[in-house]
Design a protein around this nucleic acid. Structure first.
Lengths: 202, 202
DNA sequence: CCTACCGATCGGTAGG
DNA sequence: CCTACCGATCGGTAGG
């Protein structure tokens, strides 16, 4: 049952996300956060146990979103190229839909302490593995060139993850357009291959 | 005239680079650094004016290296694809040659204060502009597909910049092999285009 | 490069 | 959500 007005706790998490993105986790103080929220520093602890709890929440909530997006994008029997296209679109849509927590997820997770740190790394590895599986399938089916799946997966993801710095909600490109351009570049490459078409359906 | 034994100051900068990479700039204390170097914290200030001076040195030295590498890779009259290949190789070689300061350069520059921060951003923009110029030239010459140069430049650089997390000096792939794979993926893309050759000269 | 130290600020708690 | 506060630690300085 969603609340119509944002709860104090959610507002706190949102402000923490903004600050962690702007300054980084380590450089953000609870007093910075209190000021941004408009309360005294001590009052924050009525809603949250510690600074790290905020980071943990942001990172693992984003991990959940990324996995949920892949689940939605997954369909059995899809050709590898089409499955990859859906994965790319799903991944980009999570970033464009949540650019601030995406930036924190991508850069601040290493400030997690154990055991969260190990858990987080395991999730990230599992996520990369799903991309790798599609790329491997494409290579084996002959749809993709004989690239190294591990190398290629990490390169593809690094290109996709650039999006959070790139995307502006009020910018010229929509999330779908960004995803389409990224997919196009990664699939076809930069090179003009000479197989011209008379018309290009955008 | 290079010194045979590392000066205390250089050793300090090297240890600072390691720590800034491992924990991030904000989470690294001067006492951490002192412990790593093997002196008391106050002794660090005999060699360095402030913590930020260390960061500044690392970031701007790396910027110099990146620009110098592009200068070496530049040659007038080169076809855009070949010029880009050289740029990619040069950029990757800087990262693989200096993986720790490269990581600091890529992630910690935002902790610079003014006016260094503005200077740094200007250098980064100039650097990206040189890649963009090659890509634009390739598009105009018809060697590259009609991609958006700005979008493509940032995507290419984000793929290249992943290298510092990827490269291991004792790993299976050399710097040249990594650069070649990245260039190949970015130029030709993932997709098998059907134009098979009987033999592929690696 | 050391001992001794400073003022500021940190994350967090007690007790309303 | 506040006032009042704590012990620890921060970047950095004085003066050898």
């Amino acid at each position: 049952m969603p609340t119509l007005t944002e709860t104090p706790k959610l507002r706190l998490e949102r402000k923490a996300t903004e600050l962690f993105r702007e300054r980084g986790y380590a450089a953000t103080t609870m007093r910075d956060l209190a000021r941004r929220v408009g309360v005294e520093a001590a009052s924050l602890y009525a809603h949250v146990r510690s600074k790290e709890e905020l980071l943990r929440k942001i990172c693992f909530d984003m991990a959940d979103r990324f996995f949920a997006a892949l689940d939605t994008a997954e369909a059995p029997g899809l050709a590898p190229a089409e499955q990859l296209r859906r994965y790319v679109t799903a991944h980009v849509s999570v970033i464009t839909g949540h650019p601030a927590p995406a930036a924190v997820f991508l850069h601040e997770w290493r400030h997690l302490s154990e055991p969260s740190l190990t858990d987080f790394r395991a999730l990230r590895d599992r996520y990369e593995e799903r991309f790798r599986a599609v790329i491997t399938a494409g290579v084996e089916a002959g749809a993709f060139r004989a690239v190294d799946p591990k190398f290629t997966t990490l390169t593809v993801l690094s290109a996709l993850n650039w999006t959070y710095q790139w995307y502006r909600p009020d910018g010229a490109m929509s999330s779908e357009q960004i995803a389409a351009q990224l997919y196009d570049l990664l699939l076809r490459g930069l090179k003009e291959d000479g197989s011209r078409k008379t018309e290009d359906g955008a």
